[in-house]
Structure formats: C-alpha cells, structure tokens
Nucleic acid binder design. Structure first.
Length: 219
DNA sequence: CACCAGGCAAGTA
DNA sequence: TACTTGCATGGT
C-alpha cells in the first residue's frame, strides 16, 4: 500500500471518528492571524479569552490594532500569557499589512505562495508553524501545518525519525498527499482532535481510534 | 506543588 | 550547527 493510500485511510478513519472540525475557529482572517500568534506555546482556552477581550475593546480590526499602543494591547491580551512579546509580535505583522499592503489582507494574499511564506517568516515573531497556520487557515493556501500534535501523532505511528525537522515533516505530508487546502485543513484539525482526546503522550493509548484500525496496524 | 499549553528569538559554545 | 533560556498566564 502506498504512503498516500495509508495517509488517506488514516484521514478517513479520523474523519469518521471525529467528524469535520470546522477549523480554524474565528470570524475573520484577521482574527485567525491574531489567534495564530496568541496561541504560541499557549492553550487555546486562554487564547479564546484574550480574543474575546479584544472584541469587547473593539480592537479586532486592522486599523484599530494599528493605532493602539503596544502597552494597551498587551494588557488586553494578558490572559494569553507572554503578553509583552505577543503584543509586539502582533504589532509587527499588523504594521506590515498596514504599511505595505494598504491595510488589506486581501492585498497581502495576492502574493505568490513562496513569496508570501518568506514574507511572513521574515516578520519577527512569525516562525514556521505560525506562518503555515496563517497561510492555511487565514489565507486558504494548501500548506500542511506541523505542530507538537503532528509530531506526537507521527511518533505514535512510527512514522517519525528523530532527524525529522519541521520541513521534513511538512514535506512528508505534502509530498504524499494531493495539494488540497480542504484536505490539509481537516487533516491537521483531526490530528489535534485525536491527540487532545486520546494521545496525551507517547506511546499510543489503547483506546485510540486508530489503534484498532487495520490499515494503521499495517495489515 | 509541579508541570504543561496548537513557539519563537536571542544568546552561548 | 546544536543546545539553552526568556517570555508569563491559567488550568490540571
């Protein structure tokens, strides 16, 4: 069986087990970009509080975020932790969108994918995972997001080499799957659902939906 | 009480 | 290049 077939079978099993995840939670591309920064090394529950507080203060808006003082923004997002550094990181990307793309995320999204990814990665505070989360979930680009859950998932299924870095893992998925943003969107969200509910850590727990799957047990 | 959560940047050897 | 550390709140 091909790697692609195996991955797609895993995908089907997860989709049957958990259903569509409707990722990313957020009302707008801007909110998704904000969430991607705020969730760095932080549980989503605390991020959701910060986002809610931003809406209460009426600053889930590009122009308002551009104008607000960093210190004031930091106080509003306090519950997400790392608030001083995250307020600066939010400012960094907001400033680029405002200054270079006339305050329009649509304008930003007109760039070619490689150019767009490089631009994001060159912003202080945007690393590979945050960039790819923005690309996939805010800008609808077909890139596979690799995070701690993805690595744990691969490790649990013996698909992970210690030498694998972020881009090795990304190439593994992108190289063995059709370049489909809907597939990448749902697949990553399903991996998160799997890990959050069953695979708190390695090794694989016995009641994981995939442990009973014939395909995964390599039959 | 310790430890972790949907990382990243900067510093050190 | 390959580690290590700072960033900081809130939940378990």
């Amino acid at each position: 069986m091909s790697t692609q077939q195996r991955l797609l079978n895993i995908f089907d099993t997860l989709l049957s087990a958990f259903g569509t995840r409707h990722w990313w939670p957020g009302d707008s591309p801007l909110e998704i970009i904000v969430g991607a920064v705020l969730t760095q090394n932080t549980s989503w529950k605390n991020v959701a509080k910060a986002i809610g507080n931003m809406k209460i203060h009426g600053i889930m808006d590009l122009d308002r975020l551009y104008k607000i003082e960093q210190d004031e923004l930091a106080e509003i997002i306090r519950s997400a932790g790392f608030f001083n550094i995250k307020s600066k990181r939010l400012k960094n990307i907001i400033n680029i969108i405002h200054d270079v793309f006339d305050g329009s995320i649509d304008n930003l999204n007109k760039l070619e994918i490689t150019e767009l990814r490089e631009l994001l990665l060159n912003i202080n505070g945007i690393g590979p995972e945050t960039a790819d989360s923005i690309l996939l979930y805010a800008l609808d680009r077909p890139v596979f997001v690799v995070d701690a859950y993805t690595k744990r998932f691969l490790k649990n299924h013996d698909l992970y080499q210690e030498s694998s870095d972020y881009h090795d893992i990304q190439r593994y998925f992108q190289g063995h799957l059709p370049s489909d943003r809907y597939l990448f969107n749902e697949f990553h969200a399903l991996i998160v659902a799997l890990c959050q509910m069953y695979c708190k850590k390695t090794p694989l727990c016995s009641d994981c939906p995939l442990s009973a799957d014939k395909v995964v047990t390599n039959r």
